[in-house]
Amino acid sequence: MKARKPWLTTIAVSVIAVFLLLPLLNTLMTSLKTTGDINSFPPKFTFAPTLEHYRNVMFAAGYDFTSYFKNSILLSVFTSLFVIVIALPSAYSVIRLGFSSGRLLTLSMALRLFPPIVFAIPYYLMFQYLGLLDTVTGLILINIFLNIPLGLILMVGFLQELPYEIEESAKIDGCNVYQILWKIILPLMAPGIASVAILAFIFSWNDYLFAVIISLNKATPVTLGSTMFITSWGIKWGDISAATVLSILPPLLFTFFAQRYLVSGLSMGAVKG
């Protein structure tokens, strides 16, 4: 639809965008100020930028931020990998081979309804018994669980959009189910797989609840690690801001460079329920 004064819309949307991004902009600014500038009141809006807080976070003694970051990377990469390996074949089995006549999907929708805290207690005790407390492996297992319902629903949605004729002719040419899945479905599904992978990466990167419950120090990811800069002798706002900026960087990079996949994933996840 054509608005009569499009520039007015641009201004209105820009104001809303700045308001929504206020926490991020403010944190970015704080991370670049010297400690003196941070503590000035009224706040300074012009200042000489410094990278000292980023240096502190990455190299100063007593900070484990780099290992938190490594944990987060491991956690997110393996979670999205396993979500795909588990969800794609079972989605294929449900859609093309008629497995469970849809009950599997109803179940995964039901799982999405429960607050994850419901599973926290049994997980904690199971992991204690298995020696998985404070391990990245334990966190990966839980994050696969958290992301499988969305993965399954998206895979089903994307599969339903593929034309069946290609598979049919492959079958006539003598391909078995596994060859069809590997040689035909996998390449055709690449955009859908990318959506699931990116969303699972971001959601597991952002998990905080299970990081608090399962990790003590060895497996701590950035979401929890950044809150640890609030120390008993005060809050080092410069360092904590730098840590926060570094921690939100990977998800934000995805938002800018893979927005197409993100939007298609999020809106399909919504439409398919």
Binding site: L20, N206, T223, S247, I248, L252, F254, L262
Partner: peptide, 9 residues
């Protein structure tokens, strides 16, 4: 952008 930021952060 805000959708992608961890709520804890």
């Amino acid at each position: 952008l805000p959708i992608m930021v961890a709520p804890s952060l």
